[in-house]
């Protein structure tokens, strides 16, 4: 089963982080990534750019309009996501607990829909 782990954050989340904190945080996340890439359970790890760089595309009556930034400053945005392929929900939860951000804030765990269908 595939699961998506997601971290949400905004500017305030990182407010207290100095350069040393960043170095440590990145090292811990890299170690996590390496560990679970090696087990074959982590399929992808993606960090999203700051909301500053995000755009929203809306097409109305054939015309595309692009605006800056998805949400208000106060809302948290998707900061990074990790795709797992594991035996069970329990394993996905175990791995999520190992993510450094889980000890800092929290990590969301969502099952990814698949296309296999049983006979109903």
């Amino acid at each position: 089963m595939k699961y998506l782990l997601m971290i949400y954050a905004n500017q305030q989340t990182w407010a207290g982080f100095g350069p040393d904190d960043w170095t440590k945080a990145i090292a811990e996340q890299d170690a996590f990534n390496k560990e679970f890439f090696d087990t074959g359970e982590l399929l992808g790890a993606f960090g999203l750019a700051d909301a500053e760089n995000a755009r929203v595309v809306r097409v109305r009556e054939g015309a595309a309009a692009v605006t800056d930034g998805p949400y208000l400053e106060s809302k948290e945005h998707l900061a990074s996501y990790y795709l797992l392929d594991v035996e069970s929900e329990q394993r996905a939860l175990e791995i999520a607990a190992r993510m450094p951000f889980a000890s800092f804030r929290g990590v969301e765990v969502w099952p990814v829909m698949h296309e296999a269908g049983a006979e109903m």
Binding site: V112, M113, H114, A116, G117
Partner: peptide, 10 residues
């Protein structure tokens, strides 16, 4: 449901 075809069926 986490299976897309089953979800649609239901």
């Amino acid at each position: 449901a986490t299976s897309a075809p089953e979800k649609r069926y239901l």
